[in-house]
Computed example of a mutant assay.
Amino acid sequence: MSSEPLLSVRGVHRRFRTGPTVVHALRGVSFDVAAGSMVALVGRSGSGKTTLLNVIGGLDRPDAGTVHVDGSDVTALDEDGLSRLRREKVSYVFQSFGLIPVLSAAENVAAPLRMARVAPTERERRVELLLELVGLAD
Rank of each mutant, 00 (worst) to 15 (best):
G36L: 06
G36A: 07
G36I: 02
S37C: 07
S37T: 07
M38W: 13
V39T: 15
V39M: 13
V39R: 15
V39I: 15
A40W: 02
G43K: 10
G43V: 07
G43N: 14
R44V: 09
S45L: 15
S45G: 08
S45P: 03
S45W: 09
G46C: 12
S47Q: 10
G48M: 02
G48D: 03
K49W: 12
K49F: 09
K49I: 05
T50L: 06
T51G: 08
T51A: 07
T51L: 05
L52P: 00
L53R: 01
L53T: 01
N54S: 12
N54M: 08
N54C: 05
I56S: 02
I56W: 11
G57R: 00
D60N: 12
R61L: 10
P62N: 04
P62F: 01
D63H: 06
D63L: 03
A64F: 04
T66E: 13
T66F: 07
V67Y: 04
H68V: 15
V69D: 01
V69I: 09
D70W: 01
D70S: 05
D70Y: 03
S72E: 13
D73H: 06
D73C: 09
V74S: 08
V74L: 05
T75N: 05
T75P: 14
T75I: 05
A76L: 06
A76W: 02
L77Q: 11
D78T: 13
D78I: 03
L82D: 02
S83Y: 08
R84H: 13
R84E: 10
L85Q: 04
R86A: 03
R86D: 05
R87S: 13
E88W: 15
E88M: 10
K89T: 04
K89F: 05
V90F: 14
V90N: 10
V93S: 09
V93Q: 07
V93E: 11
F94W: 15
F94T: 06
F94V: 12
Q95C: 04
S96L: 11
L99M: 11
I100Q: 06
I100E: 01
I100D: 04
P101Q: 04
V102D: 04
S104V: 00
A106Y: 05
A106N: 01
A106F: 09
A106I: 00
E107I: 00
V109N: 00
V109H: 03
A110W: 02
A110C: 06
A111F: 14
A111S: 14
P112S: 05
P112D: 00
L113Q: 01
R114Q: 12
R114F: 12
M115I: 13
M115T: 08
R117C: 03
R117H: 13
R117M: 09
R117S: 12
V118K: 01
A119W: 10
P120Q: 05
P120F: 04
P120H: 07
T121H: 15
E124Q: 15
E124F: 08
E124N: 14
E124R: 15
E124T: 12
R125Y: 10
R125V: 03
R125F: 07
V127H: 03
V127T: 01
E128F: 13
E128Q: 12
E128P: 00
L129Q: 14
L131E: 02
L133I: 03
L133V: 05
V134I: 09
G135L: 07
